[in-house]
């Protein structure tokens, strides 16, 4: 798995188009939010800015990059090549997504670290880490499912739009309007409960037990995405 991850990291770092298109924009968007934090804090809260940062990185650096990468590796038959060896499908998949996941986690860690330095620190750091982990696992699982219906890296530009833009919209809706109204709907949408969890972890003021329950819908999305991925994911291009 580590051999695959190492080679995958080399490939990502050598692919400038991928770096510029998927990894740089989330940093730029996050910088914009942090720079204008007073405006966005009035609109929502500091927790809202944190949630937007997490899901901007999650949607573009992680989700879109993983879908694009898996589609590209399938299109060039690199996945088939890897399956010609002794390693399992699980190890191949883990190796392929590990570098992108690590880069995304590093990105979100550094950006949120910078945000905490210029504003307030999160109220509950362990809860925030749990929320970020749950959100990223969900985006990763959704990426594998989306890769199943994505024929090429070019096609990924279209297939990733609904979920990436959709989750960003959900984050803004939930974090700005709160969950006093339409709570069940907001929590069931992908990213909804994770957003509420991040907001709670950053702002504080909510009992831990009430926050932990919010992990359930996110993990339910993981299960749904894994089931979809196992049904739709293909290792070779369609003939």
């Amino acid at each position: 798995m580590l051999s695959i991850a190492r080679s995958e990291l080399s490939q990502i770092l050598r692919n400038r188009a991928l770096l510029v298109a998927n990894l740089i924009p989330p940093v730029a968007a996050s910088a914009f939010f942090i720079y204008n934090r007073d405006v966005f804090e009035r609109l929502g809260s500091l927790g809202y800015i944190a949630a937007v940062i997490v899901f901007t990185v999650g949607a573009f650096s992680l989700y879109t990059t993983v879908v694009t990468t898996l589609a590209a590796r399938r299109q060039t038959l690199f996945l088939k090549r890897l399956r010609s060896t002794a390693v399992s499908d699980q190890a191949i998949m883990s190796g392929l997504v590990l570098p992108v996941s690590a880069i995304s986690l590093l990105q979100v860690g550094l950006i949120l670290g910078a945000f905490a330095t210029v504003s307030d620190r999160p109220d509950n750091l362990p809860l925030l880490i749990a929320a970020i982990a749950a959100a990223f696992v969900m985006m990763l699982a959704l990426a594998m499912a989306t890769a199943g219906v994505t024929n090429s890296p070019e096609h990924a530009q279209i297939t990733t739009l609904p979920l990436s833009l959709g989750t960003i919209a959900v984050v803004n809706w939930v974090a700005i309007t709160g969950t006093e109204s339409l709570a069940p709907l907001k929590r069931l949408l992908p990213g909804g409960s994770a957003t509420e969890l991040i907001v709670n972890a950053w702002n504080g003021g909510v009992p831990l037990a009430d926050s932990l329950v919010l992990l359930v819908p996110t993990l339910a999305w993981v299960v749904v995405a894994v089931v979809l991925a196992s049904k739709f994911f293909r290792w070779e291009p369609r003939r």
Partner: peptide
Amino acid sequence: DSGFSPDL
């Protein structure tokens, strides 16, 4: 078909 990554 070759199945190699073009970037390696």
